[in-house]
Amino acid sequence: MAGHNLTTVEYFILLGFSDLPKLQGILFAIFLSIYISILIGNGLLIFLTKIDSGLQTPMYFFLGNFSFLEICYTSVTLPRMLADLWTQKRTISFFACAVQTCFFFILGVAECLLLAAMAYDRYVAICKPLYYPLIMNHKLCVQLVVVSWMLGVPVLIEQTYQIFSLNFCGPNKINHIFCDAPPLFKLACGDTYKIEVSVHVVAQLFILTPFLLILASYIKIITTILKLPSTAGRSKAFSTCFSHLMVVGLFYGSGSIVYFQPKSSHSEGSVKIFALFYTTVTPMFNPLIYRFLYVKL
């Protein structure tokens, strides 16, 4: 980045909810409660999947890893937002902004890929039950988790480098709650078209492709469930998938509004709300969804 010698901005200002000065204390209390709930809820799921011998199956192995990923994903943005609400400083260095953006990309893509791996697990369990223990062995489960975490890392580091190699020569106020590509493009001087297209292509590859794999898995799953002879069998089979579908819907639904809709179709305020939804609200509700609909502890 330093080699370009064009960037004059040394730090950014995350505006966040600065337009609500009288609500800063209330917002801090709300988001602190949410963060604690995320840590406790997902931490409890990780703990239970480790100590309960009855939960040593691929389904719960993926669930434990997903819960850990949710904690990491949320920790990229929420602690910083809490610090801004508490101190009212709102400044973030150029390097810290780049690091936050990079980890946000990496963990977001890892979540998409892990959701796809979990869908594949349900596909094998329901559509190929006799082969399930053979196909979903521990080695394959570990490989799927490692691939989910690591597959996008080189590309996403390169994407982050490209974004922060842009010429930021003047405005440094990011009208968002964390550093992310869309609001950063608005601050860049000069032509950003090529890099925006590159980011969009990578998003299509690492976000839309897992979604299509999830969709294909569940089309096959639902087709298989509908062929089951008994109502009880259909209900039991679908109950193991329903919570995963809810999580996929919440995560992809709010994320697609931010990243795949035309810029003119939503305001910056709505973007903040939907960003909060997939970075904080969804991880908070995930343990509850899996607790009552999936894990059935």
Rank of each mutant, 00 (worst) to 15 (best):
P210T: 08
V201P: 01
F206I: 04
I225D: 03
L226D: 04
K194Y: 03
T224Q: 15
P210M: 09
L215D: 01
K227S: 12
P229I: 07
V201S: 05
V197H: 11
V197M: 13
S239L: 09
F211Y: 15
S243G: 15
I221P: 02
S198H: 11
T240K: 05
L208I: 06
S230D: 10
E196G: 09
G233D: 11
I225F: 01
A203H: 07
I195R: 07
V248L: 12
L226V: 14
T224W: 05
S217A: 14
V199I: 13
T224L: 00
C241R: 00
I219K: 07
L226C: 13
A188M: 05
S198K: 10
S217E: 03
T240Q: 06
I221V: 15
V247W: 03
S239M: 12
S230E: 07
C241P: 01
S243K: 03
I225E: 02
P229L: 11
R234E: 05
L228R: 12
I221G: 00
V197W: 05
F242E: 01
L226G: 03
I219E: 06
L208N: 11
A216Q: 07
T231Y: 08
M246P: 00
T209P: 00
V202G: 01
L213I: 15
S217I: 02
C189Y: 04
T192Y: 06
S243W: 02
L228K: 12
S217L: 08
V197G: 03
F238A: 12
L212D: 05
L205A: 09
I195D: 05
S217C: 15
K194P: 00
I195W: 10
K236S: 06
L205G: 03
V197E: 14
F242K: 04
L205V: 15
T240S: 12
S239N: 13
H244W: 07
T240E: 07
V199Y: 07
A203E: 10
T224R: 15
I222Y: 03
Q204Y: 11
K236Y: 02
L213H: 04
G233K: 06
C241F: 01
G190K: 02
S230L: 10
K236H: 08
L245Q: 05
S235Q: 13
C189K: 06
P229W: 09
A232L: 15
A203T: 12
S235L: 12
L213S: 07
A188K: 04
A188S: 10
Y218P: 02
F238N: 09
I195E: 10
